[in-house]
């Protein structure tokens, strides 16, 4: 399935499928890399999502008809392009003590030991379907079914930046302090959302991501390196 649809008066939405599926999503990101490689004049930016890519353009620089033509051309190229080599980012997480606010409740609810929860959470290589919800927040796919759990009944007024949580069929990392209803099982010292001046984003849609368990001592060591600007993220 492939469809091009106008969206408001400055948007075009290209849909590659209608289910949350890794292969469909990979097409979205391949299309995004083609847009990057072959820039179209008048296109401001694009927003990849699970099954679509939305192109945001300036109608005084390019007409919808001309843009559609170029997009169809890119779509034809898509079939001939190799899937890009994706990056794998390793995120260190401390699952102990005060970092894992809801671990006790989660172990009780899922009837699993903390070790088992950590094992299940660090085992998969997650796929970053898209970014959104808040700056630098990755929508990850690939959570073990054994970790599916409902959201908190009473969401917290404030969850700390770096908190790693699970909710419904998803796992995620809070890029900044925000209210939220995810069950927090750990915390990472690695900022997702760069230092204020640079604003480099650690994670991009289409990346792969894996969590790695670290103890509190390692957590603080990384935290210090981050503060000194010496931390090098693990990107493979």
């Amino acid at each position: 399935m492939y469809s091009v649809q106008t969206y408001g008066d400055r948007g075009v939405r290209i849909q590659f499928g209608n289910t949350i599926d890794r292969q469909i999503n990979e097409k979205v990101h391949r299309f995004g890399s083609l847009l990057e490689k072959y820039p179209i004049e008048g296109v401001w930016e694009w927003i990849p999502a699970y099954t679509t890519i939305t192109i945001y353009y300036n109608p005084s620089e390019i007409t919808f008809a001309a843009l559609e033509k170029k997009l169809i051309h890119l779509q034809k190229m898509l079939a001939e392009t190799e899937p890009p080599v994706t990056r794998k980012i390793t995120i260190p997480v401390c699952y102990d003590g005060e970092f894992a606010l809801d671990m006790e409740e989660v172990t009780a609810y899922l009837n699993l030991s903390a070790q088992e929860i950590i094992r299940l959470h660090t085992k998969p290589v997650y796929h970053v379907y898209m970014m959104g919800f808040m700056p630098g927040f990755p929508y990850l796919g690939g959570l073990s079914e054994k970790l599916y759990i409902p959201r908190l009944e009473n969401p917290r007024k404030m969850v700390k930046q770096g908190a790693v949580g699970i909710a419904d069929k998803q796992t995620g990392i809070y890029p900044l302090d925000a209210p939220g209803g995810w069950r927090i099982i750990g915390k990472t010292p690695v900022p997702l959302y760069g230092a204020k001046k640079e604003q480099k984003m650690l994670i991009r849609a289409g990346d792969r991501l894996q969590f790695k368990a670290v103890d509190a001592a390692a957590y603080y060591e990384i935290e210090e390196a981050v503060q000194n600007g010496d931390y090098q993220p693990e990107i493979g």
């Binding site: 400055r10 948007g11 939405r13 209608n18 927003i47 999502a49 699970y50 679509t52 939305t54 898209m130």
Partner: peptide, 10 residues
């Protein structure tokens, strides 16, 4: 819906 992009005025 499956989470998707929103634009100004959506």
């Amino acid at each position: 819906i499956i989470s998707d992009a929103v634009l100004p005025g959506t």
